[in-house]
Nucleic acid binder design. Structure first.
Lengths: 230, 230
DNA sequence: AAAAAACGGTAACCCCAGTTACCAAAAGCA
DNA sequence: TGCTTTTGGTAACTGGGGTTACCGTTTTTT
């Protein structure tokens, strides 16, 4: 069980390039804390004081943000090896900028932010590597946010749905695939209402562009889909 | 004239903590190129190969992104000392992710991306400082993108306008101020159409919340504005 | 200084998507 | 296994904001 977590951690971008021994040495230095959460449980709350950098060891979490009115948006989802709270932790902004919720039973490791960026005597070699990793992580995060903006800028329901389906197709490499998000999650991800999303998907189905049942989707007319995605 | 540019550069986040001598030493090492642009001229084109990290020496540039349909969005504007292309340059993604346009006659310095992140013998001391600066720059950029997302997630016209006005008030510290963006620029920034924006601003004026003429704005009822901004 | 372009306010029209409500199917849970 | 909750498809209604068009004002350009 502990070994399983170690394997997951070795796949984490933060520890990239390290072997087991180095990882253990770094970890003992960083004083990590592991917590478990049940399905739908709150892992972190937007605005609260930062617990630290979060690394998912098992399960799935959703990174969301909500405004005063109550409409929420899904920024991303994270499986094992995924991180959250990087920006706040590395930027020294010790407040959660997002709300994190467990999609299912999951286990999360927290690393205190100050320790990561600050210097450390015990694991200096690995620490230098970590700084390089951090630079890459933040850059990738920024690129991800850029992409997120691209989604939000699309104005029509149809454009959003098609752009999303097209990206899933590119990511999964098959025209028949399972959607990683439930309908209301997808609605929150695209920043639209669920009934409107279902309505549009129904239209696309009627027009013969796609076919679907619940989470499984089949792209029937890829070319049309590409056109519609702008 | 050269001194003026140097002064601007010293205020740039990338060179923070350096003195003139160090800056000159770093610059000679980085082999910068300076170009001038006329009003409305294209500085960089989304999708094109990266020229390098851009630093504005004089004038104003707009960072925009547009989709196939032609609707464009303004990500940010940058004055002297401002940077663009950081993410691509530092992430090693050598393609412009945004389109950069000169809002007015301006002068821009480009630093080749590889040189900044790569190691360098001549200016080692300053170079280490730069790496630290870069980490901070990227983090701040990510925070900025986060904020941009917050804007885009707001669904109502009214909410967007009020949120924007409120932020300007906080930034400028006065209830009467000049808007840094023209109407159609603001529309692009908020991802709405110009006539709809004007219509909403007219409504807010009729309701006594604000008062305006062209670029000058006066917030008459700050409390209501805060409420409306959610 | 005159001509051209950009800027910005306003009005009419209309469609897209949000809202609400309801129900059937699937999945958790006891 | 049966009960409860979640998930998701669908329909009717409504309104907010996009689109288009027009025009006066301001700014740029030559």
């Amino acid at each position: 069980m502990f070994n399983k977590s170690m394997k997951t951690l070795l796949t984490c971008e933060l520890f990239k390039g390290m072997n087991s021994a180095e990882l253990i040495s770094v970890l003992t230095c960083l004083n990590p804390k592991v917590y478990s959460y049940k399905r739908s449980e709150l892992v972190a709350m937007e605005g609260d004081q930062l617990t630290g950098l979060g690394i998912v060891l098992a399960g799935d979490v959703v990174i969301t943000r909500e405004n005063a009115v109550g409409s929420r948006i899904i920024i991303a989802t994270n499986g094992p090896g995924g991180m959250f709270g990087e920006i706040a932790a590395f930027a020294g902004n010790y407040i959660w900028s997002d709300t994190i919720i467990a999609r299912e039973a999951c286990k999360v490791m927290f690393l205190p932010g100050e320790k990561i960026v600050g210097s450390c005597e015990n694991a200096c070699v690995s620490h230098k590597l970590m700084i390089a990793n951090i630079l890459k992580i933040i850059s990738l995060k920024a690129l991800m946010l850029n992409k997120k903006i691209d989604y939000l800028v699309i104005k029509s329901m149809r454009g959003k749905v098609c752009a999303y389906l097209l990206e899933q197709f590119k990511k999964q490499g098959k025209q028949t695939f399972v959607m990683p998000l439930k309908r209301n999650e997808l609605a929150d991800f695209l920043n639209v209402s669920r009934p409107s999303l279902s309505r549009e998907m129904g239209k696309l189905r009627d027009e013969g562009v796609i076919e679907f049942h619940r989470a499984s989707i089949k792209i029937k007319d890829l070319n049309t889909l590409k056109t519609l995605a702008e």
